[in-house]
């Protein structure tokens, strides 16, 4: 009984020691990895800053104007292209089209489908 208990204790001690070593090694490894990661994060953040500056430089209004005149030929907005919202006539959808009827696609019937397929344009 006595020997057995001692043996178990010794074994437990050895096990604990082994695990402790394992942990130490692992912590060492993780700490190295953490340092690498932190360094990488810092490097990447610096790169992001440089890329951000590049991005803003590439988006200089002057450069965009040159690119626009070369590829898109967009024009500045003219005042005639603005319209007051109140001057746009509202579409009037007849009540018969709004009522929900049984639709094969769904239980509740599709409001939008009716609107787009059948609603006359009442401008």
């Amino acid at each position: 009984m006595k020997t057995r208990a001692t043996l178990i204790l010794i074994m437990l001690c050895i096990m604990a020691g082994g695990i402790l070593f394992r942990i130490t090694f692992e912590v060492d490894k993780l700490e190295k990895r953490l340092a690498t990661l932190n360094r990488d994060i810092k490097e990447n953040q610096l790169k992001v800053l440089a890329l951000r500056a590049d991005w803003h430089e590439l988006n200089r209004p002057e450069r965009l104007e040159i690119l626009n005149s070369k590829y898109l030929k967009l024009q500045p907005l003219k005042s005639s292209q603005f319209l007051d919202a109140s001057s746009i006539p509202q579409r009037v959808v007849p009540a018969s089209l709004v009522t929900r009827k049984k639709d094969p696609m769904g239980e509740k019937g599709s409001l939008t489908k009716n609107y787009f397929s059948k609603a006359p344009i009442n401008d």
Binding site: I8, L9, L12, C13, A16, I19, R22, I23, E26
Partner: peptide, 15 residues
Amino acid sequence: AAAFLVIAVRLVDVT
């Protein structure tokens, strides 16, 4: 022994 066991189990659990 019980205390050691607790520590050992916790070690296994954590590691």
